[in-house]
Design a binder for these strands. Structure first.
Lengths: 248, 248
DNA sequence: TTAGATGTGTGTCGATGTGACACAATGTAG
DNA sequence: CTACATTGTGTCACATCGACACACATCTAA
């Protein structure tokens, strides 16, 4: 956190990423443990003066997960002046060895642009940044205390994701190459926060025409073995583009 | 556009508003004719250092229309560094009598937060700002050339509005107190850019349960007189909150 | 005065989608 | 080999949706 960074970053602007993964039939979120506080934070970063805001989000994502070609979506910009926490930011500066007075660029008010990402859990390699001592996946159901308004940001990301379920397919970016119908259902159930009927779920999902059933069945389960499915990449892309149901 | 404004505004940040109205069975958008260019622009403004971004949007809206208590919704933040147009902004500064070198705050790169508003056409009193020579409603179907990326912003606003139709009611903010079913249908048709079946539209709309049919019928029409309707304010609010159809 | 044009109020029919539920099939654990 | 958990598949009633027909009201033109 050098002083000269004032010259290279867009002032008062940051990006924060809600990075969703899926593992063990649980929705996960990638978080950073702050050095400067006993709380966790969403992975975030600043925007270079000539950098597209979206590129900054991609950069943050790649730095924290090592992944490229990720599903990324802007969902909201948070512009409440009270969301900045000068005390925290001062502690944060101290944690990287900087003493600064009130005019320091990092102690000004920040607006943040929120993005959420859907990533392949098993392919990601969590990597802390300079201000954090750890980077880890958290179970969506049992999140720790978050800094500033990050809880609020997370909430808004989830809301957007839920709405996305209604007119776009989800899963290609969160599930492994092949997966079973129950696994896909758990994903939907976790995002929606409610149980779904097994049979109706399957009917509706297959109705979208974006799944291919494989010959192979899952092995080593203590009951009837479910089939594996994979997404039909082309049809999935079309569904993403055109939407699933019209409404009007 | 005084030089001291650098001290009072959040640097590199603006808001732009897509203000929709409805009149003569046509969707309208409020635009400003720039003094500095032969093009039109969306009403926009800057954000005071201690002002909530949303409050800035409300302020812009009120300054341009005189209206309060408006339906306002953030839809996207535009962060492409190439979207700023230094040449235009320099001309803009000249138009208000300011000569500035490249370091001037207004000539830096700007990120803009887009909001769209739905307003009562007849209640609005269009008012130009300091940089514009006119403020007027334009027919949505026949928009003039717009500055910078404002065409793109408008497009994105429309996309969001169209999606909103699928799970939230529209119209309370755009139509007068009482209106006919055909009028409401024209509104939907204009937003969606396609024709709808009269009878199916009525069935679906009434199914939402947010309309009250009045005793009164429209007068002076060269055919069977349609009933007037009004929104049931309470049920409308509930529908806004909970959404119209679930999907999942 | 009346026929025609225009646009509204209301209803029907068949196709499709949805929620609730039953039963047979399959693989593991004991 | 039996019990158990979980999957594959199907049915039924009901709501929703797109396409369409017919009667009604009001102005206009002859």
């Amino acid at each position: 956190m050098l002083h000269e960074e004032e010259a290279i970053f867009q002032p008062g602007l940051s990006v924060d990423c809600v990075i969703f993964g899926f593992h063990d039939n649980q929705l996960k979120v990638l978080l950073l443990k702050m050095k400067a506080a006993d709380k966790w934070a969403l992975p975030g970063g600043f925007v270079y003066k000539e950098e597209d805001v979206e590129d900054a989000a991609v950069r943050v994502l790649q730095s924290r997960t090592g992944l490229r070609n990720i599903f990324l979506q802007q969902f909201h910009t948070f512009g409440d002046p009270a969301r900045s926490n000068r005390k925290l930011n001062r502690a944060l500066l101290r944690s990287v060895g900087v003493q600064a007075d009130d005019s320091h660029w990092f102690l000004q008010r920040f607006i943040t642009v929120g993005y959420y990402a859907l990533v392949d859990f098993s392919g990601a390699v969590p990597q802390p940044d300079a201000t954090s001592e750890a980077c880890a996946w958290w179970d969506f159901q049992e999140m720790p205390a978050l800094v500033m308004d990050h809880q609020h940001i997370l909430q808004k990301a989830l809301e957007t994701l839920r709405k996305q379920l209604n007119d776009q397919p989800i899963g290609y970016n969160l599930l492994p190459e092949k997966f079973t119908m129950p696994e896909l259902q758990r994903l939907y159930e976790t995002i929606l926060g409610k149980q779904l009927d097994r049979r109706n779920f399957q009917r509706k999902m297959l109705g979208y025409g974006i799944l291919n059933r494989l010959e192979e069945r899952k092995q080593g389960v203590a009951h009837k073995a479910p089939y594996y499915y994979s997404f039909d990449k082309e049809k999935y892309a079309v569904a993403l583009e055109n939407g699933l149901q019209q409404g009007w």
